[in-house]
Design a protein around this nucleic acid. Structure first.
Length: 580
DNA sequence: GCCGTTTTCGGCCCGACTGTTTTCAGTCG
């Protein structure tokens, strides 16, 4: 029986919606499945728990029908109605819609007329020239589809935020130097700081749009122009990534920035509210429907204010409750990098780090940190030379020595990154564990273990009174390794019960916990530690990606362990709590 | 299919670009 979590349910609903669309069903019917999918993805409780409590219809966009589908999926793995739809359109046709330029209508024509049901079928048909003469498939369209297949093959992987953001900044910078450009900035999922992004959205304010579009096509960073009109140009860049550049007149800057920052779901919800109040929002501004009078749009603040809302940070614009909050006049209080007082997870040359303790300390001092946790790998991680007792004594002596300095540097804390064994045990005896200031414990092996075993390992580890923090809890590496199959509801409940802190590992490939898990943790009252897991001193700068993800998870400074001053940080640790 | 300080029925977000359909449909974000 496949275990359905929120993401799996959402994918099933999305697929079903796609199939209904290709099958030519009513627009609002298939849209409701996509809407429900998005709501499930953003829901900060395990869908199974919600279903067991009979509260599925409390999820916005889920009524009795979709609730019944979810219940059936959870109970028996059966999607009611799926057989009927797949008898008309095979599920593999969904794949065709992943090609840029190929939507449901064309996918349906390809299937109905030529029985094309996969990208392989499509390539074959194009090679044999079977698409010529098909209504709606002219020479240019077929050419575009061919190129779309190539792009799908080579670029299906999304780009890490940490790689995309510098590119977007560079592009925006180049655009700002163009004559007539008043403002230029990146928008889209990059501005929302999503952990991975598909393409790069940059917005320009200028009076003469066509002139700017012409200049964009000639930028040195551009290798190919995919499309270009008076207000929008899509290009391939030297980095092999697609960028969409749009130009608006300067007085529309705020409305356009709001519009192109998204998310799509956030905007749809905004426009629905606008409509119910006799207003209309577009990238050009907020308009009264009655007389087409423009009432706002110069700044983002104006746009939100026109709907009676404060401006919410881009990171939370996912239609995950932020609009309802804003309608009450509130915005989530989010942690910032300035709130961070120290890093609790770092490695040195004693194991697999590339900087010394002194170098790490110097960098932490530059960042103005109050404390720095030295957490090299523990004994059982033999391949990186995990520390034995003698190594620990040596490191502690060094730490004592550095802490005796009066140069205003950060306090070094004696820590360790323990390995969680197959039964939840860790590297050292309790006697040794008690000598650390605190301990982090992480899963480092057994990625193919069952959900039961992997989850049990974490639960047992958290029962250990000396395991204060769980490091990179799900173990994912974006685009490279799937997370452990974990019952996150149980993990978070156990963290809350035992007072264990969960790490938000700030490494751009990890960002683990993710935004959804962070919201679950926050709801359960679990503290978060935002750590870089730095393996060299320069990597302390990666904290920004962790803070960005924390903000996406609605985390405030009060909920972040290492946003507290040293004394209260220490007294918040599980091992130092008065009652255990 | 969902939903309700207009509504339990009749609505359901907005606009640009492309290619081909002589006036607009399909796709995208």
């Amino acid at each position: 029986m496949p275990a359905y979590d929120n993401a799996a349910i959402a994918t099933a609903l999305d697929d079903f919606g796609d199939l209904l669309e290709i099958a030519g069903e009513d627009r609002y019917r298939f849209l409701s499945y996509h809407k429900a999918a998005h709501a499930v993805r953003a829901w900060d409780e395990d869908i199974m728990a919600t279903a067991l409590a009979g509260r599925l219809t409390e999820i916005p966009g889920i009524g009795t029908k979709i609730a019944a589908i979810i219940e059936s999926l959870l109970k028996s793995g059966v999607f009611p109605g799926m057989d009927e739809v797949t008898s008309r359109v095979p599920a593999s046709v969904i794949e065709l819609m992943r090609i840029q330029g190929l939507g449901p209508k064309k996918a349906k024509v390809l299937f109905d007329e030529l029985a094309i049901a996969s990208i392989e079928d499509l390539e074959e048909a194009i090679a044999e020239g079977r698409l010529t003469g098909l209504p709606g498939f002219g020479v240019k369209t077929v050419e575009n589809i061919s190129e779309g297949i190539d792009r799908y093959r080579t670029l299906s992987a999304r780009i890490l935020l940490a790689d995309a953001l510098p590119l977007a900044e560079k592009l925006a910078e180049e655009l700002r130097t163009l004559p007539g450009v008043v403002e230029a900035d990146y928008a889209g999922s990059i501005r929302r700081m999503k952990e991975t992004v598909g393409d790069i959205d940059v917005l320009v304010a200028a009076e003469d749009g066509p002139a700017v579009m012409a200049a964009v096509r000639e930028l040195p960073i551009v290798t190919e122009v995919l499309l270009s009109g008076e207000t929008k140009t899509s290009v391939m860049t030297t980095s092999g990534r697609q960028a969409d550049v749009r130009v608006v007149s300067p007085e529309c800057w705020g409305a356009a920035l709001q519009y192109f920052t998204g998310s799509a779901e956030h905007n749809v919800h905004m426009r629905e509210i606008a409509k119910s109040r006799g207003l209309k929002i577009s990238e050009y501004g907020v308009f009264r429907v009655a007389d087409d009078e423009r009432v706002a749009g110069n700044t983002e603040e104006e746009v939100y204010a026109a709907l009676g809302m404060p401006t919410m940070p881009p990171e939370v614009r996912e239609d995950a409750g932020e609009i309802e909050l804003a309608l009450e006049g509130r915005v989530p209080d989010l942690v910032t990098t300035d709130d961070i007082r120290g890093d609790l997870h770092s490695h040195t040359t004693a194991t697999d780090g590339r900087s010394t303790l002194e170098q790490n300390r110097a960098r932490a001092a530059e960042l103005g940190y109050e404390y720095l946790g030295c957490s090299d790998h523990a004994y059982d991680l033999r391949m990186v030379g995990g520390l034995d007792l003698a190594d620990l004594e040596a490191q502690w002596a060094k730490i004592d020595e550095l802490n005796a300095l009066t140069d205003g540097g950060p306090v070094l804390l004696k820590s360790i990154e323990l390995n969680i064994g197959d039964e939840g045990g860790v590297d050292y005896s309790e006697e040794v564990l008690a000598r650390f200031d605190y301990c982090i414990a992480s899963l480092h092996h057994g990625f193919s273990q069952s959900r039961e075993q992997a989850t049990r390992r974490l639960l047992v580890a958290m029962e250990n009174p000396y395991v204060d923090i769980i490091g990179h809890p799900t173990g994912r590496l974006l685009g490279r390794r799937d997370p452990f199959d974990l019952d996150m509801e149980a993990v978070i409940a156990k963290a809350a019960e035992t007072g264990t802190v969960l790490e938000l590992n700030a490494h751009p490939e990890r960002l683990d916990l993710n935004d959804v898990h962070l919201r679950m943790a926050r709801k359960a009252g679990v503290r978060i530690a935002i750590d870089t897991d730095a393996h060299e001193a320069m990597q302390f700068g990666q904290l920004r990606w962790g803070v960005a993800t924390a903000r996406r998870g609605w985390i405030s400074a009060a909920e972040v362990l290492n946003a507290q001053p040293l004394s209260s940080m220490l007294s918040a640790l599980k091992r130092n709590r008065a009652t255990r």
